[in-house]
Structure formats: structure tokens, C-alpha cells
Design a protein around this nucleic acid. Structure first.
Lengths: 220, 220
DNA sequence: TTCAAATGTTAGACTTAGCTAAAATTCCTC
DNA sequence: GAGGAATTTTAGCTAAGTCTAACATTTGAA
């Protein structure tokens, strides 16, 4: 079975949106930047291929086969991202954009070579887990930087690659996997965070902090 | 102007078929494995984009812009082919198949990185010239192994990558760029060539020998 | 030089994946 | 629980690129 790029993009998007098991048409349409009817149409096709189950008006869910395929694509994406940054020296944001295209055309053979060249990495440059060849993926239990209450000592474990622009910014200010962060002061829902990143003071918005996952070293 | 993969494939095919300046619909259709009407339709689109000129019933020709784009794609292809064999260790035939897909999605940025990693190569693994960034390409004046009359000492300069299967075979028997070949005996049109490749005797068909380009070291 | 074969083009249909407009359904508020 | 708002789906169109069948043109052989 050969799936079109569009098919693959939808499966990947459903996978990434599937926090509560089921994904709405609108969420899918937004993420893929298509109109809702386009998403409905594709959902039907994927359902016919048994890659998703669809309850009209109530959302879509990946079948085990669909999930496996989504994980393959994500593996490709993250492996390529890692390769492009580690071996060819591209920036994170550039690598992410490239990987969006490469993920669809990567053969098993080249995948294996890149994997070997990188020493079978388990994390991509932003700290996201790279699924294994047989579709296993590590489950992270980190918290979001936006949930910090103030006073914690944290270590950045992962930054989401969903917002390309943000990605570049995070890197600039040093909010990268492995960075140590102290939260000096946290302000409410619409507020800001006062951070010390590797010893440098920074004021950071709550909104982008939702995309930074951290491990807590010491609580306030 | 962003061209579709199909557009790019046609431009590349026209470039490769353009030995006598003009390319027939049939030749194009055959090379791309599509029906002739499909080729006609695409020719019209490319003509509307000013990438080719079309004289109905008399063939198609690249405009300077069309040729430049074709050369960009060929540069991508050959650079990728070189990268995949030299850096990732793929076989020639495998690399060629991969490059057919990669050539369409390679960004200028990654192209530049691969070029640098390889030390700006001028030839791909089969000996074909890699066009420069500004669309210059070396013109080869080598002869075909099939034209050998017997008694020559030759050096292989290039093997055509058009026939994927043949490519693998040529490599196995050592008919690769740089190989020294002595032609012991040549037989007529439908016949065979008796070769000595790097000292090893081989009988080789005239047909596949058309895909091997050689430089003559000494005439009979 | 004529006419059949080969080649090329036109006509019309199909598939994929997108769109807008309108209808159906669910959700939410009062 | 009724009704408007939000969401989802259906209906119908479009564009790219493919196909087959039919028509047009060129070529080549008698």
C-alpha cells in the first residue's frame, strides 16, 4: 500500500493531535491549513483504508495500522532533522522545514544509513523521542515550563517543533534540551515568567513556555 | 515560479533527449512512461510557461530558461547521487533511484552543504558532469565503447545511468570510470566485444556498450 | 504520387486533493 | 428545552496530471 503525501500528512497530524484519543475535524483542518470540508473528505478516504475510524460529528481516531504508519513518518522526520543538524550543520528551523519534505521520500535503505551514521539516536535535536523501526516510542512525563509556579530549578528536556519561528527564538535565548533554568518568578495566565537560563536572566511569555518541556530538579 | 515535479521531470527528459535540438512527443512519452497525449498536454503547459517552444507535429525544444531549470534539476540529481554513494555508501543503482525523488525536494541550502561536504565535485559516480550552480555543464567528447573496432586501449570515462539494471551489472564487471580496457576483438552490429577489463577477459554485448563512454589511449 | 502506417493532437473521462456555499448536526446558553 | 452559534458534512466546482478513443497530420513505400 503506497500512501500519498497528503495521506501521510493527515495521519501524522492526527497522531500529533490525538491527546484525548479523538481528533476533531476542525483541529485537523487548522493544523494542515486546509478548509474543514477537505479534512472531512480525507478522513473518509483514510477510514476506507482502515487507517482511521470515524464517528461522524464526533471525530477521528487512528487504528493500530494508522498509528504505525504515523510513527514511521515521524521517525523519518526526526531522523532527518537530526541528520541535517548534526551532519550537515543546518539550523533547527531550517532542518525542520526540510524534514517536512524529506519524511515522505526517505527510503528504508537511506533511513538505515542515516540512523547508523548518527549512532541510532533516540532523541532529535529538540529532544523529541525518535520512534524505533518497529514503531515503539518513548513516553515522556515532563511538565511544561508554562506550568512553573516560581522558585523551581529545572532542566529543559524538549522544545516543541510545531512553531518554526519560535524554534529559532528558543535556540537563540538558550532554551534548548539540557539547559538549566531557574524560575525566579511566575505570573498568572496572561503573564510572564522571569527565568535564569544558564545563569542569564530572561523574561519569557507564558504562551511560548507551553512549548518547552522540563524536568524538575528541585521544587520551590 | 514553482514548478511541479511533473513539470520538472518533463524538462529534464527533454534536456536529455535533445541530441538533435528537437524532441518528439513519442520519445518524451516513452522516456517518462506516459501515454503520448499526456506528453502533448504537458508540452502545451510548458510552452505557456515559456520553458519550451513547441511546433505542433514537429517537436519541442527547451528555451534558455527551460534549459537552465533542467540543469538545476540535473545538478541536484547528480549531487545527491554522489552524496549517497560517497557519504552514505549506497550502491550506484540504489543511489540513482533515490536521486530521482530527492532531486525535486533538495533546497539550495542543503545542496550547498552537500556540495561542500563533497568538495564541490565536478563528476558524479558514473562520470557524468555535474552542472555548476549557474547552469554551466562540461561538454564531453568521448566515444562509445560500442564504436570500438578492436585493438584499442581505452579508459572508461562515463557510464550512462539511464538503465538502472545495466548500471549494477557494469559495476560488477568493473566497467566503471577510470577502468582501463583493451579491446581484443570487435564483431559487427549484432555482435559482441571481447574485452580485457583491468586485465580480466570479458565478453560484452554491443548493445550495452553503447552506454559506456571511453577515452582512447592508443588506437589499433 | 498515392495511400496506409506511424506519429501527434483533440476530446472527453477519471483521480486526487483542494475550495465555497449550503445543509445537517451538535453544543451551549438562557 | 428551545433556539442560535459552532461545528461537521454534503454538494458541486476547480486544477493538475493521467488515460483511452477518435481525429489530424506527416512519412514512407509501392
Amino acid at each position: 500500500m503506497t500512501l500519498s503525501e497528503a495521506n501521510q500528512d493527515y495521519l501524522k497530524a492526527i497522531y500529533k493531535l490525538r491527546a484525548h484519543g479523538t481528533v476533531t475535524t476542525q483541529a485537523l483542518a487548522e493544523r494542515l491549513k486546509v478548509a474543514p470540508p477537505s479534512a472531512t473528505a480525507m478522513i473518509k478516504k483514510l477510514a476506507a483504508l482502515q487507517l482511521v475510524t470515524h464517528t461522524p460529528y464526533y471525530g477521528v481516531q487512528l487504528t493500530p495500522t494508522g498509528e504505525k504508519i504515523a510513527l514511521e513518518i515521524i521517525r523519518h522526520h526526526r531522523l532527518v532533522e537530526t541528520y541535517l543538524t548534526e551532519v550537515l550543520g543546518l539550523g533547527w528551523d531550517q532542518a525542520h522545514i526540510e524534514a517536512e519534505r524529506w519524511e515522505h521520500i526517505l527510503s528504508e535503505e537511506v533511513e538505515a544509513r542515516m540512523d547508523a551514521a548518527l549512532g541510532s539516536p533516540t532523541r532529535d535535536p529538540h529532544g523529541a523521542a525518535i520512534p524505533t523501526l518497529d514503531g515503539e516510542i518513548a513516553v515522556d512525563s515532563w511538565t511544561r515550563l508554562s506550568d512553573a509556579s516560581g522558585g523551581e530549578n529545572l532542566i529543559v528536556r524538549r522544545v516543541s517543533d510545531e512553531d518554526t519561528e519560535l524554534l529559532g527564538h528558543l535556540r537563540e535565548i538558550g532554551l534548548v534540551p539540557g539547559a538549566r533554568v531557574a524560575v525566579r518568578r511566575a505570573v498568572g495566565a496572561e503573564g510572564t515568567l522571569h527565568l535564569e537560563i544558564e545563569g542569564t536572566a530572561q523574561v519569557f511569555g507564558i504562551a511560548p513556555a507551553r512549548f518547552v518541556y522540563v524536568e524538575t530538579l528541585s521544587d520551590p
